[in-house]
């Protein structure tokens, strides 16, 4: 990509980012501005992942997506999960993917714009259906404490500021509580061990050894 075109693309992305922040701030104040920024960055990073020819650039766009979804977790009062997302998602998975990107020579003719657009068109009704069922854009306009929400069983939309914001301790207690998730936690640890040993043994296998 030439220098002028990349500058234009960067300026366009910055303008769209400011627009997302402005729309969020318009509807829900400071929190909305942060939400608009993180939501735009995560969806935009995913779009760059989808359309980018270079594998390394796709991986770094995935980094943007992972970090900004960590920001969304912070907005959802889950600081422990945001930390895990940065440490494990951005640190571990991305390093693995970049290592995988070094395995084979890149194929710059691999990306087919027509195929991607057809797939997006096929998936657009799904997005439209979900956005329509969720109330779509009108959801952004709704105030944080919705009187209508209390009449709906199941999902409460109301924001409750009384809830404690730190969740690391409560997640830790739930993970070691035998009545809740202790067994599942052990199974998850076992799964990680099995996966790591399996990854090691698969990648150690040679062609001539079989």
């Amino acid at each position: 990509m030439s220098k002028a075109r990349s500058r234009i693309a960067a300026a366009l992305l910055a303008i769209l980012l400011a627009g997302a922040c402005w729309v969020g701030a318009r509807f829900a104040g400071e929190q909305g501005a942060a939400f608009g920024m993180f939501a735009w960055l995560s969806v935009g990073g995913a779009l760059v992942c989808l359309f980018e020819r270079s594998l390394v650039r796709s991986c770094f766009a995935l980094l943007v997506t992972l970090l900004s979804s960590a920001g969304l977790f912070l907005l959802l009062d889950s600081d422990f999960l945001a930390l895990m997302q940065v440490l494990v998602g951005a640190g571990g998975v991305l390093a693995l993917l970049l290592f995988g990107a070094m395995l084979a020579p890149p194929d710059p003719t691999e990306r087919s714009l027509a195929r991607i657009l057809v797939a997006l068109l096929l998936l657009a009704p799904l997005c439209g259906l979900v956005a329509w069922r969720c109330g779509g854009v009108s959801a952004f306009r709704r105030p944080m404490v919705a009187a209508k929400a209390s009449s709906q069983p199941g999902i409460a939309i109301a924001y409750s500021p009384s809830r404690p914001r730190r969740d690391a301790g409560r997640i830790g207690v739930a993970l070691v509580d035998p009545n809740r998730y202790a067994v599942a936690f052990e199974v998850a640890g076992l799964l990680l061990v099995v996966a790591l040993v399996a990854a090691h043994s698969i990648s150690q296998r040679r062609e001539d050894a079989s």
């Binding site: 969020g24 829900a28 929190q31 909305g32 939400f35 939501a39 995560s42 969806v43 995913a46 997506t65 979804s69 969304l72 907005l75 959802l76 799904l126 997005c127 979900v130 956005a131 969720c134 109330g135 779509g136 959801a139 952004f140 709704r142 944080m144 919705a146 999902i155 939309i157």
Partner: peptide, 13 residues
């Protein structure tokens, strides 16, 4: 922000 906003981001991802 409402729950639906997060769900829209999620379905886009």
């Amino acid at each position: 922000m409402a729950l639906q906003a997060y769900l829209c981001v999620s379905v886009a991802l």
